[in-house]
Design a protein around this nucleic acid. Structure first.
Lengths: 251, 251
DNA sequence: CCATCTTTGTGCACGCGTTCACAAAGACAT
DNA sequence: ATGTCTTTGTGAACGCGTGCACAAAGATGG
């Protein structure tokens, strides 16, 4: 039952579809840019273009928020910025901890995008005693031994895991036990967490592999005219003459 | 027409659904681990657990590959590793360039996950002349001026953008013009690219905001018993007593 | 006050993805 | 050879997300 849960809730939270929630930050970013340029109102068409989505989708998304635009005019930029910020919970302060201060963890700590919108790096944590006390991004790295105390003292509910894959599950368990209920996982592992804990993963390797798949497909299509149907009956699946014994075995 | 295209193809490529493609790397990782432990065969149930998915989903995914398991036994681990690797295009070498060698870019360059599976960092590129020649991850950083030449000479078709947001679109355009057809974007911007170019984005800030949304929702639900159904009719939507005029306007 | 024009909000239909549930297929023992 | 038992492969149903297309709403001008 408690095995390998890495899915998002999938149950639409309070009537707002998950897909919509995932787009709200995109809208917010576009709106913030407009706000900085002192643009008072924006139409769904314009905003959709800025966010890279369909205008109908955008309008439907906003309809879930109950955000009201003005027909014939558009949406009030400032109002929408506020509404979306509130809906996403960005009007409050979210202390986060980053665990695993290697190359990636340090880069995350230095990343400006954290502090900008309601998120505050409360602590950097690493298992290496040699790292303890060393300043990273103007903040001393603390040792894993103090993890629980740090979580509790700072009221941290969001944790970022940037450890090697091998340590991720263990760190995750400790974070959860200490009260963290949302985890952003950069380690290339499937984390298993109890119900009620959200995990989102950012996996560089997976993204690259997906790109490689499409890239290979593009390359395979070339020279056969269009690319609509399956032109490659040539090496169809390579099921092999010998049934299902693989001829070559890569490392 | 050429406005803000950031979606994935959505057209199922050669009959393999996009959702399945996105899971293949997950399966591959789990299978590789089994392979290293010299496990000869694995059932859909076991493998699904390791990959954190439903077993029916996994079987259906494999059915798209035409991968054959053996009923009553399971799947041959080595065979599957090979099949999935080939399907994802990992049996060939993919030279990639990383543009923008700041904190993040450097971390990516040092990331082992790149080299492991068919991906090879062909070059590191940065716009800062002061960076040129400096070694990062045992490789000299090259200047943006040479971008086109680097792409062409190395036959690079996959580019990673780790620049600040402001420079991303420009870098993207140059990459595409030079022949790159797949882009992994770490900059917090919507990239617009011509048809035929795939863009995948990794956006830390967005992930955090999505987590914050759910986190806020959890916090709002507390104190009303379990968390199964929607017990919080209490503060439904918080539309406020004063209609829809926002009381406070944040910066 | 009325007509026109712009833009929102949404009902509806369609397609993709997920899950269930089961028949078919093969291993294995007798 | 036959029966049993395990596990795959998939048909079918369902639900979510997307996009179209249009009616309703309001602004604006005369």
């Amino acid at each position: 039952m408690a095995t390998g849960r890495t899915h998002r809730p999938a149950t639409r939270s309070r009537g707002i579809p998950e897909a919509t929630v995932a787009r709200l930050p995109l809208y917010l970013r576009a709106l913030t840019a407009l706000s900085e340029r002192s643009v008072p109102t924006v139409s769904s068409e314009e905003l959709a273009a800025a966010a890279g989505v369909n205008s109908a989708k955008l309008r439907k998304d906003f309809s879930y928020l109950g955000s009201y635009g003005t027909r014939g005019v558009g949406y009030d930029v400032e109002y929408l910025v506020y509404q979306i910020s509130r809906e996403l919970g960005l009007t409050q302060d979210w202390p986060v901890v980053i665990v695993g201060i290697g190359n990636l963890g340090a880069a995350l700590a230095n990343y400006g995008g954290f502090a900008s919108r309601g998120f505050r790096v409360a602590a950097l944590i690493d298992a290496d005693p040699a790292m303890a006390g060393k300043p990273v991004a103007g903040m001393p790295v603390q040792h894993t031994d103090d993890l629980e105390k740090i979580i509790t003292d700072n009221g941290v509910s969001i944790g970022v895991i940037a450890t090697p894959a091998g340590a991720a599950q263990q760190v995750c368990d400790r974070l959860v036990a200490a009260g963290v209920t949302s985890i952003l996982n950069f380690a290339p592992t499937v984390l298993s967490v109890p119900d009620g804990v959200d995990v989102r993963k950012v996996d560089l390797s997976i993204e690259l592999q997906i790109l490689a798949f499409h890239e290979q497909r593009k390359a395979g299509e070339e020279g056969s005219g269009d690319g609509t149907a399956a032109p490659a009956a040539a090496q169809e699946h390579r099921k092999g003459p010998d049934g299902d014994v693989p001829a070559v075995m890569p490392a």
